[in-house]
Design a binder for these strands. Structure first.
Lengths: 206, 206
DNA sequence: ACCTGAACACCGTTCAAGT
DNA sequence: ACCTGAACACCGTTCAAGT
């Protein structure tokens, strides 16, 4: 039954998954500004209008990419670890997932702000935090705040990666003045620590 | 000497400030997606190409708008207040400034991520935090983390304002399920508290 | 000093029609 | 079920030329 259509395909024919796969490749190779519907269509060797059979619009396609980017398995952490260490690990894992694709943070950030998708990492963070004994609203607010920091930080980080690779630096900014490499990871961990420490010591509701 | 040019102007003639003023009006009235160079030119009754005498490109124009949006005077705070309350006040003031223009947070966020401008609020936050006795790097990192949270939170907040005004809600999301109005201010204050509490209790360097 | 006119090289999206 | 072909209504930017 399967495989009987491979010989008589009249033109290209793709699945929704094919489209998302190709989009993810273009994103990673050329960046978000170059991920246009027309360029994507050309890569798939179809007309731009063909894409609208698979996705109603570009925004929905980007939401699908965002979901894939954050769909990484959460990092394994010591079973005895408390909610603080688990939240740290979850945050670091999310950062890794965003860094795994060029402009990954931008894509997730924009669809998150748009209200579409990207709720998976929010829920994961909220659940991890809730294990600390916080009520649902506190956990949700803390997770949202932490997620905003993470998305902003990694977006910034990826923006710098591109600047550096293009050799573009703002006037008067020497390469040393810009934090790069491991410093970025340190700054990220520092920000996460600020959050969990604040939450841990908070007497708001626990 | 002044005023002798008003009668014999051959065509429209604008200053760089005129252009930024008009752009800010379009931004506030129609939102960032509708702030195009062509629409701006039309509002000023000039050709699109005329804008490029005043600004080298759109990105630079947006950076100018970002600078104006955050140029609000910092809120007055009790002279005896400590760095925690001052940081809270500075954060709330920045939120107000961003909320004062439609899509204000998006504009500032994008130019901040781009590396242009928006350094004024970062410096203000860093200085306020440094008054708590933290070293320069810690203050800078904490200010950056806080700023990322603020920009993400207010962007999200403004995105929701537009959704609500359009009557658009994601499937299955009831209006009650979405935090609105004063809840957003509460959630914002909660996030800021997480930060300053974490920093206050932090033994990293103080 | 500031603008016009015309062009270049693009966008996202719609829709009737084809296979 | 999936794509073509053609169009609509736009974009940002450049550059020679005008006043």
């Amino acid at each position: 039954m399967a495989g009987s259509e491979s010989a008589n395909s009249r033109y290209v024919r793709h699945s929704r998954d094919d489209v998302a796969d190709a989009a993810l490749r273009i994103l990673d190779e050329y960046g978000l500004p170059d991920l246009t519907m027309r360029r994507l269509a050309a890569a798939l060797e179809v007309q731009p209008s063909a894409l609208y059979w698979h996705f109603p619009n570009k925004q929905t396609l980007l939401a699908e990419l965002a979901d894939r980017i954050v769909a990484r398995p959460a990092p394994q952490v010591d079973a005895e670890a408390g909610w603080v260490d688990r939240t740290r690990a979850e945050s670091a894992g999310l950062r890794d997932a965003l860094l795994a694709y060029r402009d990954g943070a931008e894509v997730v950030s924009s669809t998150f702000a748009f209200g579409l998708g990207a709720s998976a990492p929010l829920n994961r963070l909220a659940e991890t935090i809730a294990a600390g004994g916080f009520d649902a609203e506190t956990s949700h607010r803390a997770a949202t705040a932490l997620l905003h920091f993470i998305l902003g930080h990694v977006s910034h980080e990826q923006q710098r990666l591109q600047f550096d690779s293009l050799g573009v630096l703002a006037d008067g900014v020497t390469p040393d003045a810009v934090e790069g490499g491991e410093n970025q990871a340190d700054a990220f961990a520092f920000g996460v620590t600020l959050f969990v420490t604040g939450l841990d010591r908070s007497t708001i509701s626990q």
